[in-house]
Amino acid sequence: MSTAISVGKPSWWRSEFFLVGVLLLEIAIFSRTGSNFATAINALEIVRLSAEIGLLAVWMTPVVLTGGIDLSVGSLLGLCAVCFGKLWRDAGLPWPVAAAATLVLGALGGGLNAMLITRLRLPPLIVTLGSLSLFRGLAEAITRGVDNFTGFPSGFLDWGQGYLVGGIPAQAPVWIAVAAGVIVLVHYTVFGRALRAIGHSPEGARYAGIAVNRCVAWVYVLSGTAAGLAALVYVARVGQAKADAGTGYELLAITAVVLGGTSIFGGTGSVWGTLLGVASLAVLRNGLQLSDQPGELAGILTGVLLLGALSAEVGFKKFSARRRASVTLASSNSPS
């Protein structure tokens, strides 16, 4: 009989090592092929470009940890972006007020998901698939599909286009602070532990007295708020707000989370892994661009990267399971 230890050591470190390897490989290749790739300015540019996907992805991590998924964040980003534009331009609110209202709107959008998932017990995949259409549709209705909000005040645009000392992009502090906050929340608090318990076994968590519904609801509300924040960062960076803002971002965010080793079935995963996932995707896109490669190659390589990472993990597990089995066999054979 195999004893205690081996049954399933946390495997996150393996995917993280894998991703560090991928990242180093990407840097090595693009340093040779890309013009101006290996410069400090470009490194900071990558931080700027990864901010929106990164914000969505780090908050997607707790969602996936509970065994859920949030497909609506890209659409909610679009809806928040056009609402921000509408509030600032048509309602005439000062931009900080409009920004605060946008964050509240994001939280409400997440709250809608949370309510349907916890009250009606609908599967998160279906609920957020529905709200994906709903939020994008609302964004298109508000702009009638054509309106484009531009001409934002420079005080606002500075947050997305400006620089701090040393050429650090202005959105970097926001992005890093949020990422750090999620790392602390998921890895160092009671709440994070509860999320893992729920992801492994919602029923088991309930029997342990964890307020499962309350925890799950918070996770979706926070994910929606992150979409609101990402919308602001996005609008500040590109200087315009259209209804199609953030299309497909939800899938990139989920890709980063899964690439980072978080189990799509819930329970195991780390925010550090997600950050590495975000970085390896962002470096890939940026590097291809600087190497004058066609844009569609980015999609192909993202797919190859994700499928490769997953296959490598499964392969590694099979390999170690087989090795374990042969060890057990050998030890059980030896006495006879």
Binding site: V190, R196, A197
Partner: peptide, 28 residues
């Protein structure tokens, strides 16, 4: 299914019902 969470370590299992009390608040 209900008594323990199989995928979690023994330590996390025994602290699950006292998370709030053992850590007095939010930090693990």
């Amino acid at each position: 299914r209900h008594g323990v969470i199989l995928e979690m370590p023994v330590a996390h299992n025994v602290s699950l019902a006292v998370l709030g009390r053992l850590f007095r608040g939010v930090w693990l």
